[in-house]
Nucleic acid binder design. Structure first.
Length: 497
RNA sequence: GCUCCCGUAGUGUAGUCCGGUCAAUCAUUCCAGCCUUUCGAGCUGGAUACCCGGGUUCAAAUCCCGGCGGGAGCACCA
């Protein structure tokens, strides 16, 4: 029976079936599973430097959910690897989070909590859920790959305790003894079989110095802290999928209630330098001018360029939390940002690669151009050209060939070779397809725009731009830019088109 | 090699659990047109997608099977 006929018949028999339940269209992020009352979530940055665009996703998603359901977002510094801590992070990360508008309800630092992890580790030993292994690393790994136990795995508690104490008192050097958490040696996934819980490292820790030499690894520390912080939901990248499985063993051994885990996919961000180690090296070697170099994908760099945190937030909310890998789109982020800044960005003429031309036969000229076309109440830029009738025009526009050009808000000119002749002020010429170009008066000042590829565009800009220090402006027909210096010369940073 | 996850337009996303109103949503992008003054904004119109092949069914983006493709992990980093 064809579909039409079916419908007709159904209409007479049971019309209510034809009305589909109005499904709620999800706006923004999907709901979290298993929410009872308020949520408790966390950020877990490694304090090794400032946050970049990639980090902002995790922070914003957590913040969005905490704001939706109420509750708390805890910032937990994960600094259990003394060799990978850059103390700068303890300061810059909270600043970056504040700029993003992420509300941190509580901050804890794992390097304050070593005693807690030791305590748990000892309990695991007592329970027979962990062991101290003194096998060479390779031996242990080979056995594990063959689903075999190392000789230490099943030894009695007193022997384990002896070696455990030895880890602290210097009987062993790094890698000579480690605490292993038991899982299931026969697990089909080799990544899940027994994992290292704590190890020895004599590298001084930036915060605790040489007070401790036994450091927990993330799977132990994270499981313990997530539990003690009574988290309800944990958002993490899907690269942590196997870590979640490992941590679940610890939860099960103690009978702790597990949080809901949500894993999101990886993001590949084109054209931006994000890798922290490479960035740090580049800064040290002078390739980059600092953490806020506009070539970088750090939040500091984006802020410097005039990218608003709200645009970043909207972007990540639209992307959501699916487990698929995605490609980041600068164009979309810029579009969101443009929407945010356009209204407040006053207009100015910046002429890149300027050429001076004299307009022959011109009367006394003066332009009156709005600071913002949609906001005449903000006033006008009065650009005096005067008797001499000379202006700056971009080389590219000048070379667009002979013919008529409209100097925006000023007059029309007729180009012939290098000379220009006044051609009235009739806007009707636009109907004929005359190109409108921007220009600058002779009292324009030199200006530089720092581009995102590290190059600098040199030109001249109306002096009025000095009033916009610190703000994002729009250089007509060029781009949006943030004015970051006006004396002794004007310097701006490119925002986007 | 082993384990796990995932495939809707250029990009991201809705729909997939509970098959039908899905010739598939929204955003961004791109193209064209409009606009007496920007390559910005606005308005109008257009473009592009259910990975492939079987099966089940009256009906498949949705269920089943098999391919193919992508990703993650198998670290004394997080």
């Amino acid at each position: 029976m064809p579909a039409d006929e079916q419908r007709k018949q159904l209409e007479s028999i049971a019309p209510e079936l034809l009305v589909r339940e109005a499904k709620l269209r999800e706006k923004g992020l999907p709901d979290l599973e298993g929410v009872v009352g308020e949520v408790r979530m966390r950020l877990a940055p490694n304090p090794s430097g400032p946050l970049h665009l990639g980090h902002s996703r995790m922070a914003i998603l957590n913040d969005e959910y905490v704001k939706r359901y109420g509750g708390i977002c805890i910032n937990r510094f994960e600094d259990t690897d003394p060799a990978r801590v850059d103390p700068l992070g303890y300061k810059t990360i909270p600043e970056d989070l504040a700029w993003l508008g992420v509300k941190v309800g509580k901050t804890i630092i794992q390097s304050d909590r070593f005693e807690i992890y030791y305590d748990i580790a000892k309990k695991l030993l007592e329970m027979g859920r962990a062991y101290v292994c003194t096998c060479p690393v390779e031996t242990w790994r080979e056995l594990k790959n063959k689903k075999l136990a190392c000789p230490h795995r099943e030894e009695p508690f007193d022997k384990q305790l002896e070696r455990w104490d030895g880890m602290f008192d210097g009987s062993y050097r790094p890698e000579e003894a480690s605490l292993m958490v038991k899982t299931d040696l026969s697990h089909p996934n080799p990544a899940i079989r027994d994992f290292v819980g704590l190890r020895i490292d004599d590298t001084p820790h930036p915060r605790t110095g040489t007070k401790y030499r036994v450091y927990p690894l993330m799977n132990l520390a994270v499981a313990v802290d997530d539990h003690l912080l009574e988290l309800t939901h944990v958002l993490r990248g899907k690269d942590h999928l196997n870590n979640t499985f490992r941590q679940e063993y610890i939860y099960n051994y103690f009978g702790w209630k597990k949080p809901f885990y949500i894993h999101y996919g990886r993001v590949s961000i084109e054209e931006a330098q994000l890798k922290k180690s490479t960035t740090a090296k580049g800064i040290k070697e002078g390739t980059y001018t600092g953490w806020d170099d506009p070539r970088l994908g750090t939040l500091q760099a984006l802020r410097r360029r005039g990218i608003r945190p709200e645009a970043i937030r909207r972007y990540w909310v639209e992307v959501g939390i699916k487990e698929v890998d995605i490609e980041f789109s600068w164009k979309t982020l810029y579009s969101f940002n443009r929407e945010l800044i356009d209204d407040s960005a006053n207009r100015y003429f910046f002429v890149s690669d300027p050429v001076k031309i004299k307009i022959e036969g011109a009367p006394d000229l003066e332009a009156k151009a709005p600071l913002h076309p949609e906001h005449p109440e903000r006033g006008y830029r009065e650009l005096k050209v005067g008797h001499d009738a000379s202006v700056y025009v971009g080389r590219e526009d000048l070379e667009s060939g002979p013919g008529m050009l409209r100097l925006k808000d000023l007059c029309n000119i007729e180009l012939e070779g290098q000379s220009a002749r006044y051609a009235g002020n009739d806007l009707g010429v636009l109907k004929d397809g005359v190109q409108i170009v921007h220009w600058a008066p002779m009292d324009a000042v030199p200006a530089e725009v720092l581009m995102t590829d590290g190059t600098v565009k040199k030109g001249v800009v109306e002096t009025g731009v000095k009033a916009a220090l610190g703000k994002v402006v729009q250089f007509e027909r060029f781009a949006y830019a943030r004015v970051e210096q006006v004396e002794p010369s004007v310097r701006c940073v490119f925002t986007h088109k």
